[in-house]
Amino acid sequence: MTTTAPRTTASRVARDHVTAALPTMEALRGEADRLAVWGVDLADRMLAGARLLAGGNGGSAAEAQHLTAELVGRFDGDRRAFSAICLHGDTSALTAIGNDYGFEEVFARQVTAHGAPGDVLVLLSTSGTSRNLLRAAETAHGRGMTVWALTGAGPNPLADAADDAVTLPGRGANVQEAHLVAIHAFCRVFDARVRDRIGASR
């Protein structure tokens, strides 16, 4: 099959999906300054010893794990590792908490265990209505943490529960795709800030 093949129903579906992502990505471009503030703030906190926790459900769980991997590993070149925990990553804890306390508590219980004042909790949701994420945000605030949310269109309960939020219009799949771009932009700012701070301290 070549790129000059006649458009089929399948090719139209693919084109429609890509086209639908464009308004969502345009809305994300308008949030670049907010993501820059988050990246700088998180770098300053983590250089001082803070930790990041992240959570989501389904595809958003994968995005949350992508974020923590970039911080524990590396993004824009070699640097020190930072403490970041994805709250669905420990399946034994997740299933034990769900079994003993209910699915609404699977993230909140871990926030209680791992979170401390000054830490950051990042929550991702296309709907912005997931009860387990709302409980996590509530618990984080009770522990003196800062909560940032990446969600679909606002207003929504999770964006309202967060200290700050990026809310994006569009279908769920397109919002998740934009969330990955947001994470990468956020991490790029984070790494640049770390390099600037470390260079300035030498």
Rank of each mutant, 00 (worst) to 15 (best):
A69R: 04
A69E: 01
A69T: 12
E70L: 03
E70F: 01
E70D: 07
E70V: 01
L71R: 13
L71F: 12
L71H: 12
V72L: 11
V72W: 03
V72K: 04
V72D: 06
G73E: 05
G73L: 02
R74Q: 11
R74H: 11
R74N: 08
R74P: 07
F75Y: 15
F75T: 13
F75K: 07
F75Q: 10
F75E: 08
F75I: 07
F75D: 09
D76L: 12
D76H: 12
D76M: 10
D76G: 08
D76F: 09
G77E: 13
G77V: 15
D78K: 13
D78T: 14
D78W: 10
D78V: 14
D78E: 14
D78L: 11
R79K: 05
R79W: 12
R79L: 09
R79S: 07
R80T: 11
R80D: 11
R80G: 13
R80I: 08
A81R: 15
A81Q: 14
A81G: 15
A81M: 08
F82E: 07
F82C: 11
F82S: 09
S83R: 15
S83C: 07
A84C: 01
A84D: 00
A84Q: 02
A84R: 03
A84W: 01
I85Q: 06
I85S: 05
I85G: 05
I85D: 01
I85V: 15
I85Y: 06
C86L: 05
C86W: 01
C86S: 15
C86M: 11
C86A: 15
L87M: 07
L87S: 09
L87F: 07
L87V: 02
L87I: 02
L87R: 05
L87D: 07
L87C: 09
H88N: 13
H88Q: 11
H88G: 11
G89P: 11
G89Q: 08
G89W: 01
G89N: 14
G89L: 06
D90P: 04
D90L: 06
D90S: 04
D90R: 05
D90N: 11
D90A: 06
T91Q: 03
T91A: 13
T91S: 13
T91I: 14
S92D: 06
S92L: 10
S92P: 02
A93L: 13
A93Q: 12
A93G: 08
L94K: 03
L94E: 01
L94I: 03
L94Q: 03
T95M: 03
T95F: 01
T95E: 00
T95K: 00
T95D: 04
A96V: 06
A96F: 04
A96I: 04
I97K: 03
I97V: 13
I97H: 00
I97N: 04
I97M: 02
G98Q: 04
G98R: 03
N99E: 04
N99W: 02
N99V: 00
D100S: 09
D100C: 10
D100G: 11
D100K: 09
Y101I: 00
Y101C: 08
Y101E: 06
Y101H: 12
Y101V: 00
Y101W: 07
Y101S: 10
Y101P: 00
G102E: 05
G102T: 08
G102F: 03
G102R: 10
G102H: 06
G102S: 11
F103Y: 14
F103W: 14
F103K: 06
F103S: 07
E104V: 08
E104L: 03
E104F: 02
